[in-house]
Design a protein around this nucleic acid. Sequence first.
DNA 1: ATCAATAAGACGCGTGTGCAACTAATGCAG
DNA 2: CTGCATTAGTTGCACACGCGTCTTATTGAT
Lengths: 149, 149
Amino acid sequence: MGIADDAVEIRAQGWRTLAAVHGIIETALEKALQREHGLSVVEFTVLDALSRQDGWHMRMQQLARAAALSASATTRLVTRLENRGLLTRILCADDRRGIYTELTPAGRALLEQARPLHDEVLRTTLDEAREIPELAGLAGFVGSVAATG
Amino acid sequence: MGIADDAVEIRAQGWRTLAAVHGIIETALEKALQREHGLSVVEFTVLDALSRQDGWHMRMQQLARAAALSASATTRLVTRLENRGLLTRILCADDRRGIYTELTPAGRALLEQARPLHDEVLRTTLDEAREIPELAGLAGFVGSVAATG
DNA sequence: ATCAATAAGACGCGTGTGCAACTAATGCAG
DNA sequence: CTGCATTAGTTGCACACGCGTCTTATTGAT
């Protein structure tokens, strides 16, 4: 068992840890946001992405990348949110193939209502993860070290 | 904006980064494993979990926790793998409600065949993630620092 | 003027998922 | 031993997703 095999095992272990922490947070977020605000995690993510693009509009493809969704899933998701009056589609003037999406006041309001719960869940689940030895390192990293961005 | 608000923003940013890296890896793994070995990521995860429990059997619930799945998803996943002859259900003698699962030789063989690809995808996607400024920190952490476990 | 490429939508299909309702086995209280 | 809450696992139902394919509108190069 040489150095290469160690690296393989470290990556595998790292991925398992990453998946575990991700799963814990996502499940907790899903339940809480669904229960209190009727939002799924992806829906919140999309609204959040749009809100942080303030002043700018996002095209469907950017949205798809931001939420890690396929094109068709993005279409359907935007349609759902549009039907609920949380965002609007806007044809863009310079390239009329493109479609921008923009938060409506209602969407922005719902997002702001949901933010506190979102952060609370994040905080408590990260704290819980820190209690579990295998997850403590990553949970600490995610919760404390600013992602270099 | 005080210290508390900073912490909120750091957590949110950390979660976005975590979700992004997770999504990249999972998508790449899914495509590669599906294409080459007809396995989904969860299926690989379950087989891997079972193989690392060598000598011991796992109950459905443990499996569910290990793969971050619900009970019902676990039932169906095990059924699929059982139908493909990759694992077997074993009623346990002492508590006849409980069900153990065990890899078959075929399951173990398929797992070993798939491992090299699994690691290769892990390695290349982590390398790619390191090239993206916002993800570099986390990708480096996952790929290099042994998860404390 | 033509034709390939691109952005997005529509739609059917198969699949995986969570929830809630259900069955069966266990174990504890009286 | 009888009743009853608890636990393990399964199943019916509805829904979101990815994929593939087709369609439409627009752009840009020849």
